[in-house]
Design a protein around this nucleic acid. Structure first.
Lengths: 128, 128
DNA sequence: CATTAACTTGGATTGAACTCTAAAGAGCAG
DNA sequence: CTGCTCTTTAGAGTTCAATCCAAGTTAATG
């Protein structure tokens, strides 16, 4: 059992963000102490870990909430969940390919400027 | 020479966004007709293309504006520009590696759910 | 116990990147 | 010229994902 602060340290999310995620339906059913403090279980951390993976691959809070809701509805939503993850995966792969293309152009420009810089420094050195 | 609408079609950015980028200092010095309409040259499109690459690899509008400003200041900023692109490139590569790791976990989960779905459907079929 | 640190809530605020609106001017087909 | 579409501006509004604030409650420590 972990406090919100401990989970914050483990996940890198702030306590604020953890409460926010809970409010938005991303991580429901977190237990409380008799005093009302959140007590995260290892299972909560495991769920959180998937949530972070989805978030870090660009899924929106809303979509994650949708996925989590389906999970709560039981096995008859399995097909939809598989669909959802598959589509997300596909989108991420496309985005990464796009990204790689754009980065290639940045790299090309970088090399271009590097060469220009070399010429410029050489020019300066000759003038001395 | 292209109108804002033509550039919008070519780049996929809306006319709104093109004006916004200009206001934020991302693409300055676009010519105008005597009536005040923007007239984009091929050179503008080329500049815009680098801007899009930077944006699409996650650089913020502010950072891009900074880069563009350095470009206007002339060759003595070449070193700084090269630095800036190099650092950006490094950050993007790191981010893509992170992304790949997160995506691997998503893929793993996807396979897990797929298997669960298969078992579930089989169970349903048997009951019939 | 008393104090201090951590936690609770709801609601307001932030910042980035657009996105839209209104009112007016420009340009072109018929 | 008439009407229609496109473009202009400043500035307001939207969305997303937090992030902060105030005021109060609970747990932990000397």
């Amino acid at each position: 059992m972990y406090t919100i602060q401990e989970v914050s340290k483990k996940t890198g999310l702030t306590a604020h963000t953890l409460r926010y995620y809970e409010k938005e339906g991303l991580l429901s059913g977190v237990e409380r102490t008799q005093g009302g403090f959140r007590q995260y279980t290892d299972e909560d951390l495991e769920r959180l870990s998937l949530i972070c993976c989805l978030k870090n691959t660009g899924m929106s809070i809303q979509e994650i909430a949708r996925f989590v809701q389906l999970t709560h509805e039981g096995d008859h939503t399995l097909k939809e969940r598989v669909e959802l993850l598959r589509e997300h995966r596909e989108r991420v792969l496309e985005r990464m390919e796009e990204m790689q293309k754009h980065l290639d152009k940045v790299t090309w420009k970088l090399n271009f400027f590097s060469e220009k810089l070399r010429a410029y420094e050489e020019g300066k050195a000759e003038k001395k």
